[in-house]
Design a protein around this nucleic acid. Sequence first.
RNA 1: GGGUAGGUGGCGGAGCGGUCAAUCGCACCUGACUGUAAAUCAGGCGACUUCGGUCUUCGGGGGUUCGAAUCCCUCCCUGCCCA
Length: 407
Amino acid sequence: MSNDLEQKIDEILSRSVAEILPTREELKKNLLSGKKMRIYTGADATGTQLHIGHSTNFIILEKLRQLGHEVIILFGDFTAMIGDPTDKTAARVRLTKKQVDENIKSWKDQISKIINFEDKKNPAKIVKNSEWLSKLNFSDVIDISSNFTVQRMLERDMFEKRMKEKKPIHVHEFMYPLMQGYDSVVLDVDMEIGGTDQTFNMLTGRTLQKRYHDKEKFVLTTTLLVNPITGEKLMSKSLGGFVALNDVPNDMFGKIMALPDETIIHVFVDCTYVSMENIKQMENDMQSGELNPRDAKLRLAFEIVKIYHGEEKAEEAKKYFIDTFSKKEIPENIPEVTIETESVSLVDFIVLSGNAKSKGEARRKIEQGGVEIGGQKETDWQKVLDKEFDGKVFKVGKLGFARIKFE
RNA sequence: GGGUAGGUGGCGGAGCGGUCAAUCGCACCUGACUGUAAAUCAGGCGACUUCGGUCUUCGGGGGUUCGAAUCCCUCCCUGCCCA
């Protein structure tokens, strides 16, 4: 039994883990001791969507919850107003309370696919940091900030980088790590989990926990999903192409198939429950050429969609993908666009069906050979559709399908 | 406070009186290839258009000029150096 526990702990402390502070051994000892720890991870409420990059932390958190530890998801509604300095575009947008509540609601739904909030004995909790951060006054802030030096703040990689590049650093951005650190104090946590980009912020909390509560806070950093070729973050709103936790099955499946082949193994490790042995095996098979990366990716997409939508939907999404993109068949459920006039131009129809943002874009797609009517390529952008086209299926690009219906 | 360099499309970053709707890279879109929406290659990437053009964009406002992202004035914002 205890061996079993140790094995579980070992997996938790190794899979997707970049670093554990102060030490892995120390943390392991704590986890083995049977003492109930209070553990949290935070996410800023900058948008409505979470992506599979976030899921890594949630998966670890849930495993810890299942071991009986108290688990908290912090919703950074206050911190979002300042914006993590990592995210250059985030500053200054103040979210309304209404927006924040909206986000919380959908976030909980999204996260609940991974983390159990309904468990009778030990449910995970959600907190908002505006609850305490908005109440601090200036002298509180001074008190907190007196624990740090400017030099220490400047150590933050992002600040360092901006200093080097002579890019602006605003004074209030210094407050960000302090606020996140203060969260640890208010929640009085024993441990925080976050991506490696959060190391500095999490260490701030470690310092403050020590000062205010004389407590050792563990910090566990998780590996970030990066594109091994470009070195860019794989899941990033600004860089595009992220897989959101609330994407509909077909989109989610397709987006995963669009990930570069080189990232497959990494995503398996960080975002699925597939066993490490299994993953290792796939890695070897791909290297030896026995396993086509496409097939590994099909499985990856399946595994991930399964987490968020269940096995049945995952199966459907897989079928949809293979039929539509591999076999190039026409999918079954095609949205119907009703036309109330005698005729419409092809260009207008494409815009109406949502497959182009403007007439110019629609025109380009037609001219570039991206449009098919009833399986026939159509390159005349001046084409006008009349009732003879009633019921025909239009394909726009690889993804867009629409059926025309005249009233 | 003084000096100086800047603010350009989703981002990075050219351009410095006309040929600029604005080079290029990233992202994005389309095609070819691949039982991958990977990779690679090719093309595209403001809006409207009776396809001739028309209109709105280069921090905000005002001006000079036949004509400005490019020159001048003013305001706002930022970097760097000095104090």
